[in-house]
């Protein structure tokens, strides 16, 4: 029996899996003076947005010398602007050793999707509205492509879209399972299990032509067939998460 399951004993804490959206600073090279002036410039565009945020340093596009990487300087500079550097992502062994020396957390590199930060809250942007072209933190990137399946997904099969949406142009049969980091679209009957937002995206949705599912889950919140029967069963619906509850609404014909 796991410790958390012992009744009557209240532990000091409990570990839970958490998925947090964070800002990454993609570093191309490091020069103390230039770093600070660029940072100051960015912050001046939306001062409130950057106050007390956690930041990770992404080294995946770092082109400078490893020896030039002074994490203590980076941390110090950021700290002066109330930004908390908590870790690094990517980088080679030398760079990661330096980061560890500066007590930074090490995050695995990879092809995580980063959105450019030009979606600063509206109230913040008004202050910088007179700047004609808002500077961009990162170069433009394509969104993760949707995975498209033309064949029926049969009992016992599993289809997984690890980054973007999953689009199935055929039935998803009973005993089959479809999973996506983003939305799940089924342009046929959904008879199996559909899991959207599997990395925790609570905005993900499930769309289907006929809801006959064994299970529908969004960001870990799920409903089984029994609980889905009363609303929209065997009709075209979308399912989304509202206040931690799965809500089924009909797809209106346009």
């Amino acid at each position: 029996m796991s410790e958390t399951a012992i009744p009557g004993v209240k532990h000091c804490f409990q570990l839970k899996s958490a998925s947090v959206s964070m800002t990454a600073l993609e570093l191309y090279f490091f020069d103390d003076g230039e770093f600070e002036s660029t940072l100051r410039d960015k912050i001046s565009q939306a001062p409130g947005f950057f106050k007390d945020i956690p930041l990770i340093i992404s080294l995946e596009k770092y082109e400078g010398l490893s020896s030039e990487l002074d994490f203590f300087k980076i941390i110090g500079t950021c700290r002066r602007y109330s930004i908390h550097v908590i870790g690094v992502r990517g980088g080679n062994d030398d760079q990661r050793r330096l980061a560890r020396g500066a007590s930074l957390a090490l995050l695995p590199g990879g092809n995580q999707r980063d959105r450019e930060i030009d979606t600063v809250p509206e109230a913040e942007t008004t202050g910088a509205a007179d700047s004609p072209t808002p500077a961009r933190v990162e170069s433009h990137r394509e969104p993760a492509p949707a995975k498209i399946i033309n064949q029926p997904v049969r009992s016992g099969q599993q289809v997984y879209a690890p980054a973007g949406d999953l689009i199935v142009l055929a039935p998803v049969q009973a005993g089959a399972e479809v999973l996506a980091a983003g939305n799940v679209h089924v342009y046929g009957p959904l008879r199996g299990r559909a899991l959207a937002g599997i990395h925790g995206s609570e905005h993900a949705r499930v769309f289907c032509q006929s809801l006959e599912a064994e299970l529908v889950s969004i960001a870990g919140h799920y409903k089984i067939s029994e609980d889905l029967q009363d609303n929209g069963w065997k009709t075209a619906v979308q399912i989304q998460l509202r206040d931690d509850l799965l809500v089924v609404t009909p797809l209106e014909k346009a």
């Binding site: 064949q151 997904v153 049969r154 009992s155 016992g156 049969q173 009973a174 089959a176």
Partner: peptide, 13 residues
């Protein structure tokens, strides 16, 4: 029908 669906999936994979 369920088992046939399963075997169809195996034929495809």
């Amino acid at each position: 029908v369920r088992d046939s669906d399963r075997i169809l999936g195996i034929l495809q994979s």
